[in-house]
Design a protein around this nucleic acid. Structure first.
Lengths: 160, 160
DNA sequence: CATGTTAGTTAGCCAATCAAAGCAATATGG
DNA sequence: CCATATTGCTTTGATTGGCTAACTAACATG
């Protein structure tokens, strides 16, 4: 089997692993991976607008509305009309939201981080280079790519 | 930014690229990526059973039924009771099915293959090693990982 | 033969997503 | 200053993919 095949298989395994994890999380915890992603985006700046989320996630505003609805129902975020522009709605973290985000289990990413950290320096470097290479091969445009694996820990500052 | 972050970002970009592509395909062509995946599995051996598909895709049999329903409705595959074991249903490719699979646009994988092939030998080797490494880091069990990127060309023989 | 196992379908549910339409609020060009 | 965009968001109504649970049919086996 040639290398192209081997790498495609590996890629597929990676995709598959995250997909399965996502489902698993959806069942075990209250929020699904997608909802958690929204929560993360809100968390990055303490508050945001629906528009912002929709742009970041590359999803329609209608979808954002429904996702935010679910988070609001669980009291993880709150909606509030902006005072400066009343067409806008500010979506803000609640105390529960912060808690959820900090308590969220994160097996997949953690597994990755743990193993990655255990690697030799040269191997880490090689991996980083390779992953970036592949990413560039696959995507053309600039996309939202905060350092999370479908779900993961929040970095409030990272805005590449 | 440390290497862990950089690699997680790259991973996310990869995930994102395939996800966006999948949606795009769903709109432009008749079959969605998942349906296409089913079609590919059937194509590998000319015919299969629902069970086989469900195992390969790691999805319930009920889901397979509904996916196959859609393909049958579009006449891309056909159902036929197995003569050897009449509990089984053979799902077989139709002429249209073959056509669909061979005409299917495949920008993502093609982009990958093209760029990969253009790489120097040592770089290809490095990439393969890295991807496999990451895949192993993320998934534990053995999974279906035929050489496709959500959708892609068929290899009837490849059974790793 | 009775009971169990296996393959598949049906029914009923949920999450995520979209497009289209609607409703406010702001912006803007006469 | 008002009529007409434009913008931001929600509602409505669909579709897809996914699940579990219940059911039917066929095979397997003690």
């Amino acid at each position: 089997m040639d290398r192209v095949d081997v790498s495609l298989i590996a890629l597929r395994r990676i995709l598959r692993a995250t997909e399965l994890f996502s489902r698993e999380l959806a069942q075990s915890s209250g929020v699904t991976a997608v909802q958690f992603r929204v929560l993360q985006i809100v968390a990055e700046k303490e508050q945001t607008t629906a528009k912002e989320i929709s742009l970041r996630m590359r999803v329609s505003q209608a979808t954002v509305t429904s996702l935010v609805d679910k988070l609001v129902r669980q009291k993880l975020v709150s909606r509030e009309k902006s005072s400066t522009d009343r067409r806008q709605t500010n979506i803000a973290m609640t105390e529960e939201g912060w808690q959820t985000i900090s308590n969220a289990p994160d097996p997949l990413q953690q597994r990755f981080v743990r193993k990655f950290s255990a690697m030799e320096d040269w191997e880490q470097a090689m991996l980083v280079a390779s992953l970036e290479r592949v990413a560039t091969m696959l995507d053309a445009e600039d996309i939202d790519a905060s350092p999370v694996l479908d779900t993961g820990d929040i970095r409030r500052v990272t805005e590449i």
